[in-house]
Design a protein around this nucleic acid. Structure first.
Lengths: 143, 143
DNA sequence: GCTCTTTGTGAGAATGATTATCATTTTGCA
DNA sequence: TGCAAAATGATAATCATTCTCACAAAGAGC
């Protein structure tokens, strides 16, 4: 079994929640995807394997994944939330192409350090951040 | 007359749009506010002066302000868009307290430079960015 | 194996911010 | 003055997400 699945079971256990077939199924499908997935996309995939699953359940379970540290919400400001793998994936920000929608995951430890310092200057203890860099990728620029 | 009002008139002129009482009223109320305001909040203020104005008009005019460079959308991820003054206000990002919701406008030119460089590394030409730093402010930490 | 209680589920309604529609009004200009 | 373009307000539509609620499934205790 995947480490993520075990972690999720432990999480459910600890919270006194139940390990159901739907939750397992949704987790399996979520883990299969590599890209940032929307609730609707995940719902479609899950439905192909069990058409009885409701979308509310997908939403509910995605929330659980986030709580469990398995998933993370990302918001590219296009009207719906996306979810990406979080466990075993180090923190990163996103570079988004305004032309084709392609995204790249990026990290810059110097920026991170400066963010912390900047916050401290205003007496804030930084707990998290969102950074989206929007631009035009090379391919799109050629066209 | 405020410079912003003149700019807006010029913008309308250039686009072949009309300078109406509603637009003037909404602009006046918008300019009065110092903080980031939501469409609903602005609608309330406007309604106090002219109860006939519809909320659709407020939404429409806020879009115009953005186009005209007078306003800028900011999204603190709490379900609704906020608008802040843009003209004469240099670019900045936001520090948001997770405790009390207080926001501080911040700038760090080094970070901005690094963002550009980071994007370039992936062949992206940076056109904009969003950076929200979330933390706990000093006051909230004391409690 | 039975009850009881808790938790999970699916269908569909509800929500709430934003947009679209459309009939009516206003405006600028010929 | 008259007409075409633009603006408006009321209201309906949209759409992602959340809520509700009746029912189903599962765990504990016996």
């Amino acid at each position: 079994m995947k480490k993520e699945a075990r972690l999720f079971e432990e999480f459910l256990e600890k919270k006194g929640l139940r390990d159901t077939l739907q939750r397992e199924l949704i987790l399996e499908e979520f883990l299969k995807t590599e890209e940032h997935i929307t609730a609707a996309e995940l719902y479609d995939k899950v439905k192909q394997r069990d058409s009885a699953v409701g979308q509310a359940t997908v939403y509910r379970v995605l929330k659980l994944f986030c709580e469990a540290g398995l998933a993370r919400e990302v918001d590219f400001s296009d009207g719906m939330m996306r979810y990406e793998h979080h466990y075993g994936h180090s923190h990163h920000d996103h570079l988004v192409c305004r032309g084709c929608g392609k995204t790249v995951e990026v990290v810059d430890t110097v920026i991170e350090e400066l963010q912390k310092r900047l916050s401290a200057q205003y007496g804030f203890q930084l707990t998290g951040h969102e950074m989206y860099l929007y631009g035009i990728c090379e391919e799109c620029r050629r066209r």
